[in-house]
Amino acid sequence: MLNYFIKRLLGMLPTLLIVAILVFLFVHMLPGDPARLLAGPNADNTVVAMVRHQLGLDLPLPQQFWHYLVRLVQGDFGQSMASQRPVSQEIASRFMPTLLLTLTSMAWSCLFGLVIGIASAVWRNRWPDKLGMIIAVSGISFPAFALGILLMQIFSVQLGWLPTVGADGWRNYILPSLTLGASVAAVMARFTRASFIEVLGEDYMRTARAKGLSARKVIFKHGLRNALIPVITMMGLQFGLLLGGAIVVEVVFNWPGLGRLLIDSVESRDYPVIQALVLLFSCEFIVINLVVDLLYAWVNPTIRYR
């Protein structure tokens, strides 16, 4: 297991290098001149040229990338063009709200999705199954921004129960987490249902029922562990999508997280922040996939890695 873990960590390096190259080229293809934005609309060409030189944007692209890569290896993500603060500080100040929002959304959506998926599989083609799949299809079909606006209109504007913006307390997490986790819960329910139906048809499940074991023991002791293996893969991917894809929800609720920071950075052409955020999101996906692979061995002890 340890050798497998080390090999996977070393295998991350080429992937991160490719991502760094693609991100660097992408951000430099964005329209607009960050030097002009920072200098202001009334600045003349001389001032704009001075700002561009201070930012190093007057250097050839290969030289800019080399400087960026050297700083990256040293753990230096550069300085934000907009705030003049280190990029690491900008990201650190926004990371926890996004992480907590993602964990909250993932917790309730996984629990809700698993319950609906198992119930739909056990009572297949009966009313719990039909009701659960109607809820799942609704969750997938409803856009996140529309759901967020609808929840704000009902629970904040009309009823006045919950706040609409900010991350000051636990009540602020309710509406954003419901908006962010709705599609994940729907996907979890459908995926769990399909996996559980396949497991319920296996020979060892019929043998367990023939031995006179209770339905609860058959489902949760013999079926759940095997059904969770493909579900864990999907959970890991969904967690990565939530962590890196909460942009729409953070914009709707004006959430002080990484998604909001990315939007602001794109608008101001803040190259260092954009590059660091996209690289961080890519690294998160790689680490999550590694954690998912290790969870396989915990869920099913017969799985071994070399």
Rank of each mutant, 00 (worst) to 15 (best):
G117L: 06
V115T: 14
G78T: 04
A246I: 01
W298K: 14
Q158V: 03
M188T: 14
T104R: 04
Q54K: 13
Q74H: 14
V122L: 11
P143S: 06
R94H: 15
L242T: 00
A246H: 10
P86V: 01
G201E: 13
G259Y: 06
L262E: 09
H28T: 06
Q89E: 13
I247F: 06
I149V: 14
Q275T: 01
S268P: 03
V19K: 00
L180A: 07
G236F: 07
S282P: 04
R190M: 12
I219K: 05
A210P: 04
S156K: 01
H222S: 03
M188E: 08
Q63T: 14
L30F: 14
R306S: 13
V137Y: 15
R171I: 01
A146M: 15
F220P: 07
S177A: 15
I140V: 15
L279E: 00
L100N: 07
S177N: 08
G245K: 11
G139D: 06
G212K: 08
P176T: 01
G245E: 05
D33V: 00
L243P: 00
A82G: 02
R193I: 05
L228R: 00
M29C: 09
A182Y: 07
A20S: 15
Q79F: 10
I91W: 08
S141W: 07
L61C: 07
Y173W: 13
I274H: 09
Y271L: 13
Q158F: 10
I140W: 02
V23Y: 08
T102F: 08
A194L: 03
F196V: 13
T207H: 10
P256V: 03
T192G: 01
L111W: 11
S214K: 12
P97L: 06
